[in-house]
Simulated assay, not measured.
Amino acid sequence: MTKRPDDDRTTARPHDSTKSQARLPYSPTARKHESTGREARPHDRPTAQQHHSTKRKARMRGSTIHEQILIVGQLTVLVGVLIAVGLSSAYLGMRLAVRGTEVEVPSIAGKPVGEATEILERVHLKREVMGERFDPEIPRGVVISQHPQPGRTMKEERKVQIILSLGTKTHPVPDLRGSPLRVARLMASDAGFELGNISEISMSEIPKGQIVQQFPPPDSKDLLSPKIDVLVSGGFLERYVMPDVTGQSLNSVVLYFEKNAFKLGNIRYGDYPDAARGAVVKQFPEPGYLLTEQETINLEVAR
């Protein structure tokens, strides 16, 4: 086979241009922009002017926050001052309102009760008769003393307490002993007196309701009070022996009391592990005590 002249020629290889190109120096900025697909530009780096501008903005933000804190603090102080002023004004207003309702107590001692009442009403005060007593130097119906004393201050519509004179005692103290209580009241009233404290005593030999003793005694002199205290007979009081009801059930004890006219008082419940539930564990008065019809019996029951 005959060779062609062209077969002896060596085939030329394409020239690798990348190997022949000179390599550029390494640059981080260039590397960065290689990844983004664009070339690095001069303005991508922060300039000194931009750096100073950033610092100035940071200082301005710090200054603004500081000013805001100062404003909030000033507002807080202002609100506190306003609240304090408001509370002080309210307190002073209340004090003035209270003082505005206070009046000076006038002098009414030595005045007839009618005139004394009118004087008090002019300053919006009232009177209250606390008592009466005999006084030969002061006419009947005249104020002997008062409380509070003149010149003091008190609120409007309050009461001034007074003592009235009964004048000179014209009737002797009546003898009320031996009289029934209802009759004794009438006798005392007719003589210009009235019954004071009434006490009762059990006396089987004197009928119930009859006056046993009195104070002051009959025909007493130099009296100040028109009241006569008396001691009245309670008559014969039937007494009963207090039974022992401990250990019994409460229901049975209640029925027993009702049947025998005993008066049941308070019932208390407590924890008593050794006692049956609902059983009476204590009683007052104790067994054997002499009871009257008016006395009550208190029990303590296990729960």
Rank of each mutant, 00 (worst) to 15 (best):
156 E>D: 04
180 P>G: 11
106 P>C: 03
277 R>I: 07
294 Q>E: 15
115 E>T: 10
264 L>T: 02
296 T>G: 02
195 L>D: 03
46 P>Q: 11
149 Q>E: 14
241 V>G: 11
154 M>P: 01
161 Q>I: 04
280 V>D: 01
83 I>Y: 09
280 V>F: 02
67 E>H: 14
233 S>C: 07
153 T>M: 13
13 R>I: 07
113 V>S: 12
247 G>Q: 08
123 V>K: 08
123 V>A: 04
188 A>R: 04
199 S>H: 09
1 M>D: 10
160 V>S: 01
55 K>A: 15
74 Q>R: 09
217 P>L: 10
202 S>T: 11
124 H>T: 08
100 G>L: 04
292 T>H: 06
111 K>D: 06
5 P>T: 07
260 N>R: 13
292 T>K: 11
203 M>N: 15
173 V>S: 04
245 V>T: 01
38 R>G: 04
188 A>D: 06
109 A>Y: 03
133 R>N: 06
298 N>V: 06
196 G>V: 05
157 E>R: 15
165 S>C: 06
175 D>C: 02
144 I>K: 02
244 D>R: 08
29 T>K: 10
107 S>D: 11
171 H>L: 01
202 S>C: 02
42 P>D: 12
67 E>V: 13
76 T>C: 10
148 P>T: 09
109 A>N: 03
244 D>Y: 03
190 D>H: 07
231 L>Q: 06
42 P>C: 02
120 L>R: 07
234 G>K: 06
274 D>I: 10
159 K>Y: 10
232 V>R: 01
274 D>T: 14
250 L>A: 09
60 M>H: 10
240 Y>E: 06
190 D>Q: 13
240 Y>N: 05
76 T>N: 03
156 E>W: 01
14 P>T: 09
124 H>P: 00
193 F>D: 05
84 A>Q: 06
292 T>N: 11
108 I>M: 00
260 N>S: 09
86 G>D: 05
193 F>W: 07
231 L>T: 12
32 K>R: 15
290 L>P: 14
144 I>R: 02
284 F>M: 12
286 E>I: 13
101 T>W: 01
125 L>T: 01
48 A>Q: 13
91 Y>A: 12
122 R>E: 13
19 K>P: 00
260 N>V: 04
155 K>R: 14
179 S>I: 00
215 F>K: 13
268 R>T: 12
141 G>M: 05
125 L>W: 03
245 V>S: 00
154 M>D: 04
233 S>D: 05
33 H>W: 15
131 G>K: 07
116 A>P: 00
72 V>S: 09
271 D>Q: 12
178 G>H: 02
278 G>H: 10
233 S>V: 05
214 Q>C: 07
160 V>H: 00
62 G>M: 12
82 L>S: 08
280 V>P: 00
168 T>D: 11
164 L>R: 06
178 G>M: 03
128 E>T: 11
260 N>E: 14
113 V>N: 05
135 D>L: 03
129 V>C: 08
107 S>H: 05
47 T>W: 01
53 S>W: 05
33 H>Q: 15
293 E>N: 12
291 L>H: 01
47 T>K: 04
282 K>N: 10
105 V>R: 01
68 Q>Y: 13
31 R>N: 13
77 V>M: 08
264 L>Y: 02
192 G>H: 05
170 T>G: 05
182 R>M: 04
182 R>L: 09
47 T>L: 02
63 S>I: 13
264 L>I: 06
191 A>G: 00
